[in-house]
């Protein structure tokens, strides 16, 4: 069968590009609101900033249906195992945005109660600075993540991109 039989326009490309295009344009975040940043994350999803423009308005309550975990807020020692469990329940491919300084590094709360950076618990792809980051900052982080997905590998993403602070995922995605 030759292509000349088709009556419509068509585009050729390799499968990898197509997969990455599809992944990039429908990243569904899991709701993982912890603190102040969660309010700004919800504000980003609401009408004024409209995360739907990036195909991301569907915040999934179930980690099984989510591709992206936006860790929005400070992570306490008590919450850390829960975060890890939710992350483990997410299907590959999955990404993590660490939103705000508390999630990224502990921020201004360098004390007994807080995990000093969620990258001690889960591998992080994008760090969004700010306390809390405004919706524009979060959107910039999201667009950066989209770019990462567009240009990254689809099969061996972690090893090739160096994302995840050098952590390997043994037994993840069970």
């Amino acid at each position: 069968m030759g292509l000349e039989d088709l009556s419509h326009n068509f585009i050729t490309g390799n499968l990898e590009t197509l997969v990455k295009w599809a992944r990039r344009n429908s990243v569904w975040p899991a709701t993982f609101g912890l603190a102040c940043c969660a309010i700004e994350m919800m504000a980003t999803g609401a009408a004024n900033y409209d995360l739907a423009r990036f195909g991301m308005e569907v915040f999934r309550a179930s980690p099984r249906q989510a591709d992206l975990m936006i860790v929005a807020g400070r992570l306490s020692q008590k919450m850390a195992p829960v975060l890890r469990q939710v992350y483990d329940q997410m299907m590959e491919p999955k990404w993590v945005i660490s939103m705000g300084v508390c999630a990224s590094s502990g921020g201004m709360f360098n004390n007994y109660a807080l995990v000093q950076g969620v990258d001690q618990v889960v591998p992080v792809d994008i760090y969004v600075p700010g306390c809390p980051p405004g919706p524009q900052t979060l959107m910039h982080g999201i667009i950066t993540l989209h770019e990462l997905i567009r240009t990254g590998e689809i099969m061996q993403r972690r090893q090739s991109s160096g994302a995840g602070a050098g952590l390997t995922l043994e037994g993840a995605g069970r």
Binding site: A35, C36, I39, S76, K78, M79, F109, N111, Y112, L114
Partner: peptide, 29 residues
Amino acid sequence: GYLHTGMEKNQEELMYIQGSTNVTRMDYL
């Protein structure tokens, strides 16, 4: 307790002039 941040302990480490920075993050709404 899943969001316990130890702010009351932190407050003891911050001067009065810095204190507002800490308390403002307690009830963030």
